[in-house]
Each structure stands twice: as structure tokens, then as C-alpha cells.
């Protein structure tokens, strides 16, 4: 009797482990920091890309309006293709803020002249710290901030048709 219980427990465990490993194989082993729920926008200070003026997050981002923060750099190829989407985003019920990530200022300016400047404000992030404070981990990455100053969505990688329409839904 006791032996039988052991056998049953053993085989249940066996099948359980198999299922877990089987499912585990289907999951990607690279970690992407996905957003769960919403988090408060942290306070930060940064510098304006053009004028180099100091900017405080409280002054830049205020309650009652949607913001989209887009991390980009001139050396990042996917950012180029993404730029078209950003250009078509120009609208009134939100503000698009760019974060220029570890970039050379001249190259970045050329990039903007070539493809246009969709941003209402660009912050410069020379050493990558601002992106970390915002919880981004590479370029391109896009954060959406709602009217209560909470980050509600992160898009890692370039914006494509699918997440573009999602994005439009959120901020419409």
C-alpha cells in the first residue's frame, strides 16, 4: 500500500516535470523586461538636446496629458524605419518626447534634418543613465505615459504596424 503511494507520487512528479520542461522549451530564454501593470514615472533631470538647458521631469511632464517617450539614436538602424511611424504620429492630444541615446550630437542632427523631427522635445542621454532611470534598456524603445503620470506601456524594439495601431488606440 505504502509502496503504491510512492509509485503514484513518483509518476505524477515525473509527468509534471516533463510538462514543465516541455513548455519551458517553447519559451524564449532571452529576458525582455516587460511591463506588468503600470508604474509611476520616476523623477529625473536631464538636458535639452539642442540648448543643453537643464530640464526637470516635473516641468516637462505634467498630469492631464498623454506622453510618448521614444528612445532613439542615429547609429541605430531600426530607428530609421521607425521614424516614419513617429512622423505620422504628429497630433494634438499627446506629446512626443525623444531621448537621444548615447549619440554623437552632429550625427543626430543630420539624422533629424534628413528624416524630420517629430519630437516636441528631445532630451540628450549621453551616458545612458536617463534610459535606465526610465526603465528602458536599448534603442529603439518607446514608453507611453498616461494622464496620471504612470508608464502604461513599453514597446521594446521598433514600432511596427501592429503595435502602432495598438498605440493609436491607447492615445486616441
Amino acid at each position: 500500500m505504502k509502496n503504491k503511494i510512492f509509485v503514484i507520487i513518483g509518476f505524477t512528479l515525473f509527468i509534471f516535470c516533463f510538462i514543465i520542461f516541455y513548455k519551458g522549451l517553447q519559451k524564449p530564454n532571452i529576458y525582455e523586461p516587460l511591463l506588468e501593470g503600470e508604474i509611476n514615472l520616476p523623477n529625473f533631470t536631464s538636458y535639452d538636446f539642442f540648448s543643453n538647458e537643464k530640464i526637470f521631469s516635473d516641468e516637462l511632464i505634467k498630469e492631464g496629458s498623454y506622453y510618448i517617450i521614444n528612445v532613439w539614436a542615429s547609429w541605430c538602424a531600426p530607428c530609421r524605419s521607425e521614424h516614419n511611424f513617429l512622423m505620422s504620429l504628429k497630433s494634438k492630444n499627446f506629446q512626443l518626447i525623444g531621448v537621444n541615446y548615447k549619440d554623437n550630437k552632429n550625427n543626430a542632427q543630420v539624422f533629424l534634418q534628413e528624416l524630420g523631427n517629430p519630437y516636441s522635445k528631445i532630451l540628450s542621454d549621453k551616458n545612458g543613465t536617463l534610459s535606465i532611470e526610465l526603465g528602458a534598456y536599448g534603442v529603439p524603445e518607446t514608453l507611453i505615459i498616461n494622464k496620471n503620470k504612470k508608464i502604461i506601456k513599453k514597446i521594446i524594439g521598433p514600432i511596427n504596424d501592429q503595435n502602432f495601431s495598438e498605440l493609436l488606440k491607447i492615445i486616441k
Partner: peptide, 11 residues
Amino acid sequence: PIFLEVISNQR
């Protein structure tokens, strides 16, 4: 970590 990820999606 494998078990936790499969069961609760927590990494």
C-alpha cells in the same frame, strides 16, 4: 526559474 516561468510567467 524554469518552473516559475512556466507556471506563473514570473521571471
